[in-house]
């Protein structure tokens, strides 16, 4: 059995276990049999279908989206420290969301979707600006230029968010909890709203799995190998920001998932993107479901923001990769 076959089997088994645990453990213990037992106890059924199930699915989708876009951005930028956040896409999404809260924007027919849609618009807008600026700086849109531009935009947008938080009165708590990230109490509507974008984004990235392999050797090399670099790069950036945008929109800022999962996947199963992308997708889902489980049980009944758990795991991994790359004399 090849390494990748083992990888898929292990990942899927992990995901199933994670979902099972995520569904059954909590302040109220719900047996997994509720899934197929229609005649089960009414409260358990309610908790299971109205609270646990959407929460686990949303955590899974957000984790999967962040992980696969992280894997794609890392390959594209040839930078193992790249994350959806490096390009400033998530900062853009956050600004969109915080602005919505700060200005109490409410578009009539969007209703409760105003917040997520604005955060996605923020993500897309930022991405377009980042690309436009990078192109102005350097027509061939080199990787370094793009990353630097992302950092510039992240810093600027971060300060905008800080400013808005500083100016906020009683809305402060809501914004901060949103910034720290959470998948609790979102319900099925959020899944409905994010799912189409997640499907399209994932498909766009999956279409470019071989191109990403070529781009690992640099854009020049990829071009020589026959990759239409400009077009493919755009597809990957759009796919990645759709995923990040929709993830941030429904769950706030959850960092490091896009960094930790692809890294672990590569470490265990090799760096061929034809497998890194789907494996990151599956493992990202598992990781976030488990992190969410931990966040709501570790100091129960109080719930920790999920971003704290991911950062707790992610920051040391970030440090480790950084240290290893520096030692290697690499990027």
């Amino acid at each position: 059995m090849s390494k990748t076959t083992i990888g898929y089997i292990l990942s899927v088994v992990t995901l199933i276990v994670a979902i099972w645990l995520g569904l059954s453990i909590g302040s109220v213990k719900v047996p997994i049999s509720t899934l197929w037992n229609i005649g089960a106890d009414g409260i358990a059924t309610n908790i299971f279908w109205k609270i646990r199930m959407p929460r686990v699915i949303l955590a899974g989708l957000v984790g999967a989206s962040l992980a696969i876009s992280g894997a794609a951005f890392q390959a594209l930028l040839k930078n193992p420290l790249a994350d959806p956040y490096t390009l400033g896409v998530s900062s853009g999404a956050s600004v969109g969301a915080v602005a919505t809260l700060f200005f109490s924007i409410s578009v009539p027919f969007l209703g409760m979707y105003t917040l997520p849609i604005f955060s996605m618009i923020g993500a897309f807008g930022t991405m377009l600006l980042v690309i436009l600026f990078a192109k102005l700086v350097d027509r061939s849109m080199k990787m370094e230029t793009l990353i630097l531009t992302g950092i510039i935009f992240s810093s600027f947008l971060g300060s905008v968010i800080s400013l808005m938080i500083a100016l906020t009165g009683e809305e402060l708590r809501q914004i901060i909890s949103w910034l720290l990230g959470s998948v609790s109490m979102r319900g099925w509507s959020y899944i409905q709203m994010a799912l189409p974008f997640i499907i399209i984004g994932t498909f766009l990235l999956w279409l470019n799995r071989r191109e990403l392999n070529a781009m690992l050797f640099g854009e020049e090399r990829a071009k020589h190998l026959g990759v239409d670099v400009k077009k493919r790069k755009m597809m990957i950036l759009i796919g990645g920001s759709m995923l990040t945008g929709s993830a941030v929109a429904v769950s706030g800022t959850i960092g490091f998932v896009g960094l930790v999962v692809p890294h672990m996947t590569r470490l265990l199963f090799g760096s061929d993107n034809r497998h890194v992308l789907p494996l990151s997708f599956i493992n990202g889902a598992s990781l976030l479901i488990i992190c969410d489980l931990v966040s709501r049980t570790i100091i129960a009944p109080t719930e920790l923001p999920i971003g704290i758990i991911t950062a707790f795991i992610g920051a040391p991994v970030f440090a480790f990769i950084f240290f290893k790359q520096r030692k290697k004399g690499g990027v």
């Binding site: 890392q74 050797f217 071009k223 020589h224 190998l225 026959g226 670099v229 760096s271 061929d272 690499g330």
Partner: peptide, 29 residues
Amino acid sequence: SKELAKKMAVLPQLHSHAFSHTVRETVSL
């Protein structure tokens, strides 16, 4: 792009890279 790559292969000077493919994966590209 692809038609050109079928006609002309280019080998630039060696550069370092951050991720590691196996030899087989690299040649297969």
